[in-house]
């Protein structure tokens, strides 16, 4: 049985449009797998499909966690099995405080029926200290989720949730966009920590600038909903140096597979 997340020959339609046309990749525990690709190549679609979002129809293929298919599971059950997605642009949730959501999500994982009750004050202290480490102000935790958050605050809040909920597989959709250099470095440090804790990290990114601080174990480049090429960290360098147009010419049109 394979450990971690497996995506097998995945074909996905979004609102009747074919977006993924056969994607196969693995995210093993204790590894960072970078998913790169130009805009519209299907990176976010891959993430949403793994999470089971409504409207992302799997036409063919499979998604497995530790060898078991999760295709029939609703989103929340995938989350409870240990999947987490940090959204590129998470929505505002008026009325719901960030702490309330994290407490509810934790209570759910501990099987409590009362979602809003704080069962362990230690966890609230942990939220505050982690928020501080991430450079989030304390009052932000008590604010309505993403309402009036800056781009950088949204990214940090997503990461904070991942750290609190301790998922086994973390999918991050462009966690570096909207962050300054210090922010990128900070987020990268946490990704390395998560990897060292034995979690699987799927890092979706358009640019290679994060790789200065976090070295991926695997890199997959998606183009037009297909895997153009897969390889080690050196593939990221190639993308950085030559751009996606080159990758497309060489691997998609030229059918090359060597790096």
């Amino acid at each position: 049985m394979s450990k971690g997340l497996e995506v097998v020959d995945l074909h996905v339609n979004v609102h009747g449009k074919k977006v993924l046309k056969g994607v196969t990749l693995n995210v093993g525990y204790g590894t960072i797998h970078a998913i790169m690709g130009p805009n519209g190549s299907g990176k976010s679609t891959l993430a949403y499909t793994i999470m089971g979002r409504e409207g992302y129809e799997v036409e063919r293929g499979d998604i497995r966690l530790d060898g078991e298919s999760i295709l029939d599971l609703p989103t929340e059950e995938r989350a409870l099995k240990g999947l987490f997605m940090a959204l590129q642009d998470p929505p505002q949730i008026p009325g719901v405080r960030l702490t309330t959501l994290m407490i509810a999500a934790l209570n759910k994982r501990q099987g409590s029926s009362d979602l809003t009750r704080v069962r362990d004050p230690k966890i609230v202290r942990r939220m505050y200290s982690l928020a501080e480490e991430l450079g989030l102000s304390r009052d932000l935790l008590q604010r309505e989720i993403n309402v009036g958050f800056s781009g950088g605050e949204k990214k940090r809040s997503e990461l904070l949730q991942a750290l609190i909920l301790e998922p086994r597989i973390i999918i991050l959709d462009e966690p570096d966009s909207g962050l300054d250099v210090d922010g990128v470095r900070k987020v990268s440090e946490y990704l390395v920590n998560l990897k060292e804790q034995g979690r699987g990290v799927m890092l979706i990114t358009h640019y290679a600038r994060m790789f200065k601080y976090v070295k991926p174990d695997m890199v997959t480049v998606l183009i037009d909903g297909r895997v153009a090429v897969q390889g080690g960290p050196e593939l990221a360098d190639l993308v950085e140096e030559r751009g996606y147009a080159y990758i497309r010419r060489r691997y998609v049109e030229g059918k090359d597979s060597t790096i």
């Binding site: 949730i93 009325g95 979602l115 809003t116």
Partner: peptide
């Protein structure tokens, strides 16, 4: 007038809450 969007619902369920649990949090917040 606030309407719950699919994106908001997805966001909350992706944290491990069922549709109804997500709605109850939104209602309590409201």
């Amino acid at each position: 007038t606030g309407r719950l969007s699919e994106q908001q619902l997805f966001y909350l369920t992706s944290r491990g809450l069922t549709d109804d649990e997500a709605k109850s949090l939104i209602v309590l917040g409201f």
